[in-house]
Amino acid sequence: MRPLLGEIRYFLAGSFYRMRYHELGSRKHPTVVCVHGLTRSGRDFDALAAGLADRFHVLSPDLPGRGASDWLPDASLYQPQSYVIALTHLLATLGERVMWVGTSLGGICGMMIASSPGAPISRMVLNDVGPMVPGRAIARIRDYMSVRPEFPDLLALEAHLRHVHAGFGPLSDAHWEHLTKTSARHLPDGRVALHYDPGIAKPIRTSLAIDTELWPWWEKINIPVLAIRGENSDLLLPKTFERMVQSGAMPHVVKDTGHAPALMDAETIGVVRSFLLEQDKS
């Protein structure tokens, strides 16, 4: 089941840009917005969307500079604040309350929005991210982003993805094939590149790899939260996860997985689905 492709326009730093999104499920159903991690795209949620589409209207945007969305002319704009501007344009266009699933960077954006007065997010899933991002994890991500994202063919690209995203968990060959095909941008000379603007790496390359505390945002969030953690994650540490749970988040740990669970396995999709369906009972 291939999602439909839609778009919104958002205004940033004096210009309008296009953000594309992938859509599955009837618009008559409650809307779930799924937002991907730093170097990924909305197509990462195809399996989750297929598992939700009978009861939900699922939108999975490509953040600015990724997938089918416009690249930004100034690489310094690739910051969470810019992504939040684009995402809140999407929320304003929808004009309704939504549920949110955010992996890593997508979860950070979700926390930024959900902590704001009047935010239209009613329920949130945070996939392997929390209110403290360790500097060591930032350094690891910075290191793999230093590799130029161009490869001779799809097989080489898949080998790269299996290496840098080993933390996604014990995925099947079909899952890796899907992630590879939806991560590829074909170049005129026959090679393939990753589906993002290489400029997205500039802000993280120039930033300090220090622990980043986001607890002030967390303390303002008063909606139900499902916190998912990869068992071996270096980004959502056990102490952070425990503190989130103690403050009311529902926990789920994905075994044999690091950063970040791919949300492709039936068990985790079932947990997310059950959590989102709880809204119908509240």
Score class of each variant (00 low, 15 high):
R66I: 04
V245E: 01
V125D: 09
H165Q: 12
Y144M: 11
E150P: 00
P203F: 09
A13I: 01
L59W: 05
S282L: 13
F56H: 12
D70K: 06
L277K: 09
P216M: 10
C109V: 13
D62L: 08
H186C: 03
T93C: 04
W215I: 05
T240E: 11
V147R: 14
W71G: 05
Q79T: 13
G65A: 10
V272P: 03
I223G: 07
V164P: 03
V58P: 02
Q279I: 03
L157S: 03
E267T: 13
I210M: 10
L235E: 10
D54M: 03
L5Q: 13
W215R: 07
L155I: 07
A209W: 01
D128P: 02
T180S: 11
G167A: 09
F16P: 00
A137D: 08
D70Q: 07
D128R: 04
D173Q: 13
L155R: 09
P251F: 03
A53M: 13
T93Q: 14
L171R: 11
Y144I: 12
E177P: 00
S233P: 02
D62C: 06
P73H: 11
G258N: 08
S115W: 01
R9N: 12
D44P: 02
H259K: 04
G118N: 10
L59S: 08
G270C: 07
T268G: 04
R2H: 12
V271A: 11
M244R: 01
P61Y: 06
A262M: 05
L171V: 07
T212D: 09
P120Q: 10
F45E: 10
E231K: 03
I223E: 11
D265V: 02
D143Q: 14
F45W: 08
I108E: 11
A201Q: 04
W218L: 03
G37I: 03
S60M: 15
E213N: 15
T93S: 13
P251T: 05
K202F: 03
G258A: 10
S247V: 00
A47H: 11
E267R: 12
L59Y: 04
R2Y: 02
E278N: 08
G258F: 05
A260P: 00
A92G: 05
Y144K: 04
V98R: 04
W217Q: 13
N222G: 11
R136L: 10
L263M: 15
L87D: 09
L187R: 14
M124V: 02
M112C: 07
S274T: 14
E96P: 00
L91K: 04
Q81I: 05
I204Y: 06
M111P: 01
H195Q: 11
G107S: 09
L87Q: 10
F16Y: 12
L63H: 06
V33L: 14
P134R: 08
L4A: 15
R229F: 03
L105V: 05
E7G: 02
E158W: 00
H252I: 01
A174D: 15
A260W: 01
V58R: 06
R20W: 04
M1A: 13
I223V: 14
S122A: 15
I108R: 01
A260T: 14
C109G: 00
L77Q: 15
A50L: 12
S116D: 11
R43F: 09
W218P: 00
E267A: 14
A184F: 04
H163I: 01
W215Y: 05
A166R: 13
R148F: 12
G199D: 13
S26H: 01
V32L: 08
P170V: 09
N127F: 03
Y144V: 11
G169E: 11
